[in-house]
Design a protein around this nucleic acid. Structure first.
Lengths: 179, 179
DNA sequence: AAATTACGTCAGTCATGTTGACTTAATTCG
DNA sequence: CGAATTAAGTCAACATGACTGACGTAATTT
């Protein structure tokens, strides 16, 4: 099934053939671009977080708490799509080290509403700076219309049943109805 | 520093203020869209791989070996940016279960050139189908020019020193020179 | 002949996720 | 009011995919 090989010349190795169309043409380029882009997109923050003994999981919590002050734990679980136990460890570390605080809900005293501290705010701002630098560089090559297209593309990659939540969180346009 | 709170009404919780511009405006929307888009982008394949006892790491190896038949182990390590030990386990499992084969290099007999088997080919095609379905749905909303803008954006997110390699692998345009 | 390269492997560790079971306190529902 | 449910936390065990460091072997290059 694998046809031409040319084992001896790695430089001249041919790209695998696009197979004779059983269905849709595979979007190899976009699949790979998303992999490489995401890999590098999280690299800067990952390195910065290392200095605090934190990882990517801490970054996510910091980010969403910062963006949604007073977030409830249940809401955060629903955003991150991880289990309570996974979040537990990460959240405890952030609270212990003084990057996040918890406050009892005024209306419902079972709730532990989440807020970033002054210290957490400084860290999250630095992480935003790093990621924004990369994004601005990339969007800087685009017209306003193209920037919207990029946002629309990313939004459409998301599962349909999640889009309402994401639209709410990001402020990106809610779906204009579609097939 | 944290100002308005309104703890009692989670529905009415305000978005955190965009701070008074120390530098660039943080690209909160794109940061979050990339997170959610990637989370869902890898979900379908992850579920499909489960049936084989494989994970995301196996997917990546299968993908790049499929796309680049005769790939050398060293090249694969450089693409994935992981260590030899990490790759080792995953690759051994793929070989043991008959999804990938290794062939001695003709010119350099130290090399173990990698190929997907018939079986590996079937699996990787199924994974491509799942991811392509999602991508086509998203790109379907775009004009040809906008699709190029999306590819360009993703390409520009990648670290500059990695772009030549990615351009080579994906066939996406090599950088047209830029600041 | 010596140095380097390609590949593999052993052993231990860490970060982040998972299940399943259970507790406590507070709220809601019948 | 009492029972059921909800919000949050916790214990224990485990899986995956990464890491470091140290070695070994065969083949190639210098």
């Amino acid at each position: 099934m694998t046809d031409v090989i040319l084992a001896g010349e790695p430089e001249a190795r041919p790209r695998a053939q696009t197979e004779p169309e059983g269905g849709e043409t595979p979007a190899f380029d976009v699949i790979e671009l998303l992999f490489f882009a995401y890999r590098d997109f999280v690299r800067d923050p990952d390195e910065a977080l290392d200095a605090y003994g934190f990882g990517r999981a801490h970054h996510r919590v910091l980010h969403f708490v910062d963006r949604n002050p007073g977030l409830r734990v249940t809401e955060l679980l629903d955003i991150l799509k991880i289990t309570k136990q996974s979040l537990g460890r990460v959240l405890r570390e952030l609270v212990d080290k003084g990057f996040v605080t918890q406050r009892e809900g005024a209306a419902d005293r079972r709730q532990r509403l989440l807020f970033v501290t002054e210290r957490g705010d400084r860290l999250v701002k630095e992480l935003h700076r790093l990621q924004t630098r990369r994004i601005s560089r990339a969007l800087g090559q685009c017209s306003a219309a193209e920037r919207d297209a990029v946002r629309r593309f990313l939004f459409e990659i998301i599962d349909p049943q999640e889009r309402a939540q994401v639209a709410e969180l990001t402020g990106v346009e809610p779906p204009p109805a579609r097939r």
